[in-house]
Structure formats: structure tokens, C-alpha cells
Write a protein that binds this DNA or RNA. Structure first.
Lengths: 266, 266
DNA sequence: GATAGACCCTGCCCCAAGGGGAAAGTCAAG
DNA sequence: CTTGACTTTCCCCTTGGGGCAGGGTCTATC
């Protein structure tokens, strides 16, 4: 039996953490003195602690660990590990991209001395968009997993024998941005006219964004600046068309997104 | 001038976040209506917001961003970016190791069905340690940056013309573990007898740990279990000897650490 | 001019995973 | 018997915001 301090040394975990885990029920001491409240740990706690730390390194929350380590959840653990591996791989690649971006920014900073400059590499064009017939699916959803909802549209398209044109996009109806809950209308282009929605031709300012969505705001900013400088005003819900995305099977740095802002002359 | 909602859409940032940044002074609106409290943003805020998001992606805290983006800190920003690139690179590699470890664990789980097992790959040996003459430096420090303090010892060794034996290690005097503040005594072996400390021969349980320090607790646990099973008791401050570490110039997965626990027969 | 609906405000409490520190109780050795 | 090391509980603090309540404002439409 080890006192909390010794156990802390062995596990390489602070005493505070051990008390925290006791309180949330994640790791109860083998014994607690009824009169003094002293906690005593033994080797079975040690094993469990190693497991907890391992899963924590893998990126699980304490709550997840709590659930996954209940003996009956062996299958769930396996699934969770597989999922987590995907998440970690994605995170690793994102860090790689971040490093490349940082390096570029650093070069720019050293070259120009301007730390505001964010490499405004966006070609803005003014375009009368073409008329599109589309299937749509509108719902309040998180911007992070809207990709998952496209399958609904593709299923419907297949079931009802539509002919997809290959266009996939999303309209952002909310004025404000909320990562977890936005009023998003997904659309996929189809050839048929019957039982479809129509996107009418509109005057838009548009540009092409390359790379992951975490820097999309730069495209938005470039568009909005352009609109203001050229005497237009923003007039309607902006939308994006995903010409190359995760489902195109290409690497994230090759993704391409077209961003459209409906505008009118001021 | 944009209302907070529009500005939120443009920057891809929630309204809550904008209000938060206003409150902490990171991004003040261009104008606040004195009567209604409405916030109005314009394009210079937009540029600043892009910068903030960029630095946030690079892993800086809002406070760091606040400080680094004051115009007079251009030099500090460059330094910080260079440091951050190192940190990101390290993080990326650590994720890589984590993924490999996860994969191993997953295979083990699928093979044995035992989710407790943590691959007990440690050979424990009982050893009478040799007598060592050492230079030491003892201080309360974080376990994460004790490496930095070794330079003090090497400088002293060089100045006072000692002959290093190549042994570097650390004794952990605290009973308990505290990542940010531990009573650690660093030591480097030297040949001379004069003006040095002496580590007397002691009976120790010892083992060799390979890889990064984040899984050192597994070695500790293995040692402690062995000690208990073989009728010894832990008796004194444990210490580690870093036979291959960051300064050996090898990759993190090839690091080698010997862990010693002083023991006596029960 | 009234009203609805969309927008905005402040203020309060909440999250995870603990850290810091105070005040007080416990244990073992000298 | 005292001292010092160790432990306990309790309360507040951190980062970067999210949720919600209660209430004010703006603009278009009737």
C-alpha cells in the first residue's frame, strides 16, 4: 500500500491529479482511512493508472476514459482507438500545414518587415452566376461536420434517379457565424428540372480558395474588401462550391473551394 | 462599417468570441455607439482579426498575441515564431510516436483481448551500483526543462578543469511528483576526487527505458512491482541516468534512460 | 403609428483538467 | 513533547469561450 505521495512519484502524476481522479470517480484508492481520510493505493491502481495515462496520451478525455475502461466496453474501446488514430493522423497533418504556413509568414516578415501582411493571393472576379437546378438539404448543423450530411443528398439523388452534375456546395443563411450551429443549406447540382430547386443567376463577387478550411476567413476578408473598394454592397447569403474536397480523394493542401458573395452596385 | 453579426460571418468567428476579444482588449471595434452599446467594425479590424487567427493557429495564447502584435514588438514576434516552429515540430513528432504506440496497443488488444496489458517489456535487474564522483546541482525546477540546467554543470566542469566521464543523471528528492516544481539534483560524473560529491555504492533495482519520457511511468511501475514481488522495499530517492538523450543527437525513439530505485531487503 | 422579427446588449453561470494556497489534522522520529 | 514531513478539505483561479435570461434597438411592413 502506498500513500498518495509515493503513488504520485511512481505514476509520475501530481497529487492534485490523484485527488481529482478520486473525486470524479476515475481512480479510487484501494482504501481510504475512515477516520483520517488518508488515501492508500496498491498495485491494481497502478496498472489502471498506466492505462489511464496511455489513453490520455492518445487524446481521450477523462470522461471518455471512464466509460471506455469499464470492462464491458471492450468493443467500444477498439472502435474508439481506431477513430482516435484517424483524428491524430489528421492533427499531425494539420500541424505540418501549419508549420509550412508559419515558415512562409516568417519569410514574408523577414522580407517585408510587415507583420500585418497575410499574403493576399486571392484573385477576385465579378461574375454573373449561371442558373443551376439543385437538390437541397437545409438544416442547423455544425460547420465542422456538414460533410456528413451530403450523403443524404446523394442517396436521395440516387433513389429518385437524378443525374448529378458534380457540383456540391453550401449556402450560409445565418448572418452571423457559429461553428456549432449554423443554418446551412447544402446543395448538389442535378440535370433534371422536375422536383428540384433553382438557383437563379445572380451577380456575385467570387474567388478560389486553396487548402484547408481553417484559412477560409482570408478568402472572405479578401472578398469583402474587394466589394467595398469597388463600390458594391454585399446582398444575400454567401455560398461555397467545393470543387476539390475530402471526397475528391486529394490531399488537404490541394482542396479547392469557390466562395461566392452575392452583390449589387451601391 | 459592419455590425458584429456581419463581421462574425466575414471572419468566421462567433459573436461571442468577438465580444470576448473586445472585453480582453485584443480586438476593439472601430466604434461603439455610446447610447446603444452596438459595436461597429471596419476593415482595419478585419486585417487585425486575420492576423490574430493566424497566430492562434500557430499555437499562441490570446495574451501572447496581444503582446506580440504591439507594433514595437516586431523583433519579439520573429523570435516567438521561430520558437513556436520548434514547438510545433516537436508536437508533430510526438503525435507520430503516439500513433505508433496506439497502433501497437491496438494490435495487442486485438491479439490478446486484454485491454489492461501495457506490454511489460522491462528487464529488471538488482545491482550494487558503483561508486561515482560527481558534480551536482540541486534546485527546485520543472521536470520538463531540467535539461537546460545541465549546461551549468558542464560549464563549471570546464572552468574548473574536471574530466567528465560522460555520465549524466538526476536524483528526484521529492517523495511526490510535481511536473512544475520538483526538488531535482542533477549530476555529471567526473574523474577527479577533489571538490566533488560522492555517490556511494547502493543496492538498487534498475531497468532501462527506451523512448521519450512521457512513458517513463511504465518503467517506474515495473520497478515498483518487481520490488514488491521480490521482497524488497523502496529505500531512498530514485534517480535516472540519461545514457542516450536529446544531447546525444539521436531520435527520440532511440533515447535510453536507466532508472534506479534504491532498495533494501524487507 | 404600431408591431413583428431580426438583431444587439449586459450579466451570470458553466465547461476540462487540474494548480495554488490556506487552515487544520496525522504520523514517525528524535 | 515537539518538530517536520505528510495529508486532508475547501475555495478560488486558469483558457477560450458557450448557454441562457432579460431586456433594448432597428427596420420593414401593415
Amino acid at each position: 500500500m502506498y500513500q498518495i505521495g509515493e503513488f504520485s512519484r511512481i505514476c509520475q502524476v501530481s497529487v492534485k491529479t490523484l485527488r481529482h481522479y478520486d473525486r470524479i470517480g476515475l481512480l479510487k484508492p484501494a482504501e481510504v482511512d475512515r477516520f483520517t481520510g488518508y488515501r492508500y493505493y496498491d498495485r491494481s491502481q497502478l496498472e489502471r493508472m498506466l492505462l489511464i495515462q496511455k489513453l490520455k496520451r492518445y487524446g481521450f478525455s477523462l470522461e471518455d476514459i471512464h466509460i471506455l475502461t469499464r470492462a464491458e466496453n471492450k468493443g467500444a474501446l477498439r472502435e474508439a482507438l481506431l477513430r482516435q488514430r484517424v483524428i491524430l493522423t489528421a492533427r499531425q497533418q494539420e500541424i505540418g500545414m501549419t508549420i509550412r504556413d508559419l515558415t512562409l509568414y516568417l519569410q514574408n516578415l523577414e522580407g517585408t518587415g510587415d507583420f500585418m501582411k497575410t499574403a493576399n493571393k486571392y484573385d477576385i472576379r465579378l461574375a454573373e452566376t449561371e442558373r443551376r437546378t439543385v437538390l437541397t438539404y437545409r438544416q442547423r448543423m455544425s460547420v465542422d461536420d456538414f460533410g456528413r450530411y451530403f450523403s443524404k443528398l446523394f442517396e436521395r439523388s440516387a433513389q429518385e434517379h437524378f443525374t448529378p452534375t458534380g457540383v456540391t456546395g453550401a449556402i450560409y443563411h445565418d448572418k452571423e457565424f457559429d461553428r456549432d450551429s449554423s443554418d446551412i443549406e447544402l446543395f448538389i447540382g442535378v440535370k433534371e428540372e422536375k422536383d428540384t430547386e433553382v438557383m437563379k443567376p445572380r451577380l456575385c463577387a467570387a474567388t478560389l480558395h486553396r487548402g484547408s478550411y481553417s484559412t477560409l476567413s482570408e478568402a472572405y476578408a479578401a472578398l469583402v474588401s474587394w466589394i467595398e473598394e469597388n463600390g458594391y454592397v454585399w446582398d444575400g447569403a454567401p455560398y461555397e462550391i467545393y470543387t476539390k474536397a475530402i471526397w475528391s480523394g486529394c490531399a488537404v493542401e490541394d482542396w479547392e473551394t469557390e466562395v461566392y458573395f452575392p452583390v449589387r452596385k451601391k
